[in-house]
Design a binder for these strands. Structure first.
Lengths: 231, 231
DNA sequence: CGGGTAATTATGCAAGCGTATAATTACCCG
DNA sequence: CGGGTAATTATACGCTTGCATAATTACCCG
């Protein structure tokens, strides 16, 4: 009658925390914030609810940690493919934009998850700061890529910081907006369509042609919005 | 001791419904969905909670109605200033973009409110359909304005539907993205800065100069991102 | 091998939730 | 003026929530 099998396993703290965060993210993305109750999260992570209190002083703490985790991963997934130093700056910028507008970054789960968090930045100060930080981080990476691409293209004068800032804000908005729309209404766009639009648009905004042409044997040259008058 | 004052007033149905919807919107924007409980909404609208059930079969019903109300108002507030038929198409487009990126449309309250709703489009079918409808409505208005502006500017060939669609998607993304960022981090941008960026960017995307110049005595010509190569 | 300790479970509680139903009551109409 | 009725209030129920606290128990170390 005596059961010798251990009733639970003791895991290292960081690992358990990570498991709880992942469980929270899964639940929020599937059922919204309302579905991410302490009990549901614990069940998903295969622990009892008391353990959450042991690692996070409050539920809000856990949610905040989950937000940070998600946003950092989004940024990383977008930036990583563009990190190769041995390609042209233009290619790095192109890769960055395309990565941000394709799976797995552009995804219903990610978008609704993000929206859940955003809705709380007005109330929750921790969330607000987290959003500010991740936003600036992302925009700054984008600005660096744009600057490098402009310099590489040999613009007559070195890019004015003020213009650069505005280009970054605008390009960021394009990416964010397309990402959101693609995530919210996946069936409304063809595969790769939003990435293509993103490249054309950012190209028009910063004054460079960003169409991908090196990797693939280049499709019909002007099948994508040929904004007249761009470089 | 007998109190002759009536204990409550009977109001017309539509008026009561409207009051409940407004109360719900106020609460969601202030405290997020979690704060919009049946009791809190009723208190805000100065009625007892039972009345909500009398007008909306379920709480979800009320929330859904509130979403529709909010989105339609956003669209209307953006489109109304651009509805004058007696100005140029270019001016109408300019007005539309500027209105969407200035108060009261661009506002923390509106953005967090919108985010609260968006986070539920994955779970809730009614919300999903509502989002789809409002998105297409907004984008379609934008596409018409762009088409008119292009024709008016005398583009060599009449705008190809496919290009037009992509321009509308991209311009919509710019507006959405800037609107979101401006609402989420109001202190990060100067007054009018995002509207200005929006005009420049959409201009670059569709190949027209959209800088406002007629109404105000035109500021220093190139103090705004002079994207090289645009018309 | 055997004790100490921190990870984990088990249990409980008070508050708030959405919803249902019955009791009031303001207002309309003859 | 007086009854009928729908708008509104009042009350209650069952359930879930986040959090706290006490009881277990797996694992490490001498």
């Amino acid at each position: 009658m005596t059961d010798l099998r251990p009733k639970f396993r003791r895991e290292p703290a960081t690992q358990r925390k990570e498991a709880l965060i992942q469980a929270a993210l899964a639940l929020i993305s599937e059922q919204g914030v309302a579905g991410a109750t302490v009990r549901a999260i614990a069940k998903r992570a295969d622990v009892t609810q008391g353990l959450i209190r042991h690692y996070f002083t409050t539920k809000e703490d856990l949610i905040s940690a989950a937000y940070e985790r998600h946003m950092n991963q989004m940024t990383e997934l977008t930036a990583a493919p563009a990190a190769h130093a041995d390609v042209s700056a233009r290619t790095r910028l192109t890769t960055f934009i395309a990565a941000g507008l394709t799976s797995p970054v552009m995804d219903t789960r990610s978008v609704t998850l993000w929206a859940s968090f955003i809705s709380s930045i007005r109330t929750d100060d921790a969330m607000r700061k987290m959003h500010q930080q991740t936003y600036y981080d992302f925009r700054n990476r984008l600005e660096c890529l744009i600057r490098d691409a402009l310099i590489e293209a040999g613009t007559p004068t070195p890019p004015d910081p003020k213009n650069l800032r505005q280009m970054a804000i605008a390009s960021n908005a394009v990416i964010d907006g397309l990402w959101m729309e693609g995530g919210a209404l996946p069936e409304a766009f063809d595969t790769g369509e939003l990435a293509q639009i993103g490249l054309t648009s950012v190209g028009a905004i910063i004054g460079l042609d960003l169409q991908e042409q090196a990797t693939t044997p280049l499709p019909t040259p002007s099948q994508v919005t040929p904004t007249k008058g761009q470089l």
